[in-house]
């Protein structure tokens, strides 16, 4: 892929005041990419602000959750024949300046999905609450064991993927509530190659799209989701 068409999807829920900056950061980092903000039924000016900042916007008529919002972006990217789809949270937690590094990793390493990991550096710049730390650590371990590769940040929503992965995610295999370690395992079993690159993240400012899931439910949901993913027959969707 010499000159890939790139779409950066930014799921945003009540992110007015932050989403504009995200769009501008992405545009500055990857001027050749289109930016798509998918507004998850926000009541504030999220969509308008994204549009003013130069993004293509889609608005979900009702609040549908993080996974459903992201999947809308994948569907858009697949239908408009993009080659690479990236995703960056609209609340400003992820920093667009890392996208070129992630794109380079996608090209160089022949990976299908590149995940920006905030824990790969081990510099301790990012400290979630203890409960989340335990949860993330647990599923990072589980994902690492299952996929037989080191995974440090399965919760990261800062990703860049080839269109084959997005097409795979448009099917019903994708969890529309809260995709996490389970999709990494799903991808591994479908034959896709996942790679982590170190990034820095800002502490999530106030109400993020992820604040809705409580730690205990997160542990339950992820355990069950990983278990049933392993119990299902492998899906062979690898587009080569």
């Amino acid at each position: 892929m010499t000159d890939p068409q790139i779409l950066i999807v930014s799921p945003a829920n009540t992110a007015a005041g932050r989403v504009g900056r995200v769009v501008r950061d992405v545009t500055r980092a990857l001027p050749m990419a289109d930016v798509l903000v998918v507004d998850d039924g926000s009541a504030d000016r999220t969509a308008a602000e994204a549009s003013e900042a130069g993004a293509i916007t889609l608005s979900l008529p009702v609040n549908s959750g993080y996974g459903a919002t992201l999947q809308t972006g994948y569907k858009y990217g697949v239908r408009h024949h993009y080659d690479v789809i990236g995703q960056i949270d609209g609340d400003g937690q992820h920093q667009g300046e890392y996208l070129p590094v992630m794109l380079e990793a996608l090209r160089q390493a022949d990976a299908d999905l590149v995940v920006g990991s905030r824990f790969l550096d081990r510099d301790g710049h990012y400290r979630p609450s203890l409960a989340r730390q335990v949860g993330i650590g647990l599923f990072a371990r589980v994902a690492s064991v299952v996929t037989r590769q080191h995974i440090s940040d399965p919760t990261s929503g800062f990703q860049l993927m080839r269109i084959g992965v997005a097409r795979f995610f448009c099917s019903e295999v994708y969890p529309t509530d809260y995709p996490d370690a389970d999709i990494l395992i799903l991808l591994h079993r479908a034959g896709f190659k996942v790679l982590e690159v170190p990034v820095k993240m800002r502490p999530s400012s106030g109400k993020s799209m992820h604040s809705g899931h409580r730690s205990l439910y997160y542990v339950y949901k992820m355990t069950l989701s990983i278990l049933v993913t392993l119990l299902r027959p492998r899906s062979q969707h690898r587009a080569s």
């Binding site: 916007t57 008529p61 858009y76």
Partner: peptide
């Protein structure tokens, strides 16, 4: 999602 895809606004 289909409805959202129909609301596409280009800046």
């Amino acid at each position: 999602q289909e409805i959202a895809l129909l609301t596409e606004k280009r800046a």
